[in-house]
Design a protein around this nucleic acid. Structure first.
Lengths: 219, 219, 219, 219
DNA sequence: TATGAATGAGAGTTCATTCAT
DNA sequence: GATGAATGAACTCTCATTCAT
């Protein structure tokens, strides 16, 4: 049994388990295809990327693409899900009160939240643009996008509740809307900040966004 | 400016405005085409709208579309310019300190700003989506878009300067970033609020956004 | 008004009047396409004829094919309808008792029936094979085929009734089934006879088929 | 024929029947594949059945299909041969004068002929259609098909000869064409009768077809 | 100017077949 | 023998754009 340590942790079981990746080669090809797709999308955008490009970039035949994905759109959906599950997990972990050791200063936590959301943008910035374009264009894309937003919003809400219970919220805060407003402010500031290449600008934007949120939430 | 007779002779191919009624019909056709395009874009999105659809919706032949626009993209560019000039003018007018009569209370002004940006969303919400999608997708589209954003940002900045000079800003405000952060917060909150059909929700979102901005800017 | 004699007899008005053939060029192109399709189908069969082949044979671009037909199948359907309306009209005219002048000898009439059905096969024999193949393969094709068969069957039935009323039928004839049985015997004998290239064979087959039917129907 | 020991050494690559059980499994797989193919062809037709479907229906991998058949067409050829050998054997056995015991009444024999051909239709009616379609479409398919038809025709001819020698044929019968005409009449009447689900209709059609043939052949 | 038939490059997608394991 | 991932030629169909009328 020595040498099969990864096996038991496998089986993530995506919706239709299209390919129970029995074979290592298969798994490898799928990864190559995703990587190739990312590369192509970043270079040409979604619409101007052809399946032939992706195949050639991955070093396989066109038909192979269709052994792994039903169509081009499924690739970008998968890409979105992979990218954003990662983001959401990180964000939500940061916001979880259970994870707060030592420092309970909500300003620190807020700063962490902003950092983690801003930080998430740094992953494949080219892809973020593609994903936003798709969000605005493709109604079917909107749904998983909103689902992600909602997960984050709920986490923000829980965070605010925790802060409030610690008596640190300003009085008169409309908790119902607060998470909505904060989420939007952070989401769009981070997106726009990362359309600017300058790291200093990005940092300054993160600082100010933190300030914006903190002044809104706390005493 | 009096009498420019030679000019029209110098450019012989420049439609001599011989028949104003024809010009009027021409303008009318152009408008019909734009309206038809809006209709189609809202229904099917930009990419899935064919020039044939637009022509048919406008009640003209395909060829006619190309008598008025060099290509499909020009239509949406024109659309963007029309839509957003409208928005920008309104927003900027509201923010101009010169327009403030009586009430100089910056909280009122902030609320006006938020209102006017939220209000802009109600214009052809389907088209806003299309424009955003185009913004993220088409590099050539980015430029005029950024230009617009920048006009608004500059106006916000001027507004903050005016407020600051009146001694009403909180100390330590990074004026450089403030307009960026505020613009983003307001822009995205209004966009997202208008994906919700409920007017009460939209109002509440506007209120909270105003609160967010006011707490950030003022003492 | 001189020189437009055909116009008033036009407008056959097919189901969706896809192309009210306003322009002569348009009508001409459509004809070219049909002819080209026949040519290609005869040479390569239906499935192995590509739309590109048809276009090239017709001397037009691929896209043009799709200006006139929604897809390849519509071409063969149209072809079937054109071919077989022609056949049916001829057959039914022959069988109509109202058309009998002078000779009322049912044997002559039967012979006419067989002749006209056999004769119909001589139109584009290559196409007949294609149509039969399609009949067996494509359920949607079966329907118009059966409709044609039924028109002929009804005509045969009327013919038998007329013969019967003239007291020329043999006694004990099951008129219910007779038209079915006769139709099948004639249809398949003519089809199979025309898979043989030899005209003499075809004639002999026609003779014997007439004999078969006459002995079955008459005293 | 005694002792051919060297032969098996001479053809070393010819699977030495070492393991009868494996051969049995092999035969079983082949049968599974044929059955699966029949199933698929009936459901989707020949062209729309993919080798992948057949493999999956048979519960084997695609590659396995190619271990048993050189290509897709070979499957249907084999199917044709199996189906129609069955039919032909039955038909020909019935028509063989040597099999006539007792009753030599040709009307009974005719009825047997019709019955046996009609009866053959009940075998996999879906497949019959597929085979006919292939017959009209694929020239290579035509040959074995014609061969079968010819075997039956020859048998019918022999039957007529026997009847004639017994002095029971009507005078003036063109024996050359008679078998052709009778074969077609029976073949197509049975095919069409079986497109109707009603057993009573089928029986009536068989009766009338028998009448048709009997009146044609006999005094 | 308006028309709408014609264009044709090029996209997405399929699937019979191969072959390394 | 069995497997199933990989192949890639080939097909259908689309649609922005042109241009003769």
């Amino acid at each position: 049994m020595i040498g099969m340590p990864t096996k038991s942790q496998a089986a993530p079981n995506r919706k239709p388990p299209r390919h129970p990746p029995q074979q290592a080669r298969s798994r490898r090809t799928r990864e190559k295809l995703i990587e190739a797709a990312v590369e192509c999308f970043e270079r040409h955008g979604f619409d101007d990327t052809t399946t032939a490009m992706i195949a050639s970039e991955a070093g396989v035949a066109v038909g192979t693409v269709y052994n792994y994905f039903t169509d081009k759109r499924e690739i970008i959906l998968e890409l979105f899900e992979a990218t954003d599950r990662e983001i959401a997990d990180e964000v939500i972990a940061q916001l979880d009160p259970a994870s707060w050791r030592g420092s309970i200063d909500p300003r620190d936590r807020t700063r962490s939240l902003i950092d983690v959301i801003f930080h998430a943008q740094r992953l494949r910035p080219g892809i973020q643009r593609i994903l936003w374009a798709q969000y605005f264009k493709d109604p079917e894309f909107r749904e998983p996008f909103e689902a992600l937003r909602n997960r984050i919003r709920v986490a923000i809400d829980a965070f605010i509740v925790a802060v409030d219970e610690a008596g640190l919220c300003r009085s008169g805060l409309d908790r119902e809307m607060a998470s909505f407003v904060v989420l939007n402010a952070v989401q769009w500031n981070s997106s726009q900040a990362f359309l600017n290449e300058d790291p200093a600008f990005r940092d300054a934007a993160a600082d100010e966004t933190a300030e914006l949120v903190a002044r809104y939430l706390f005493v």
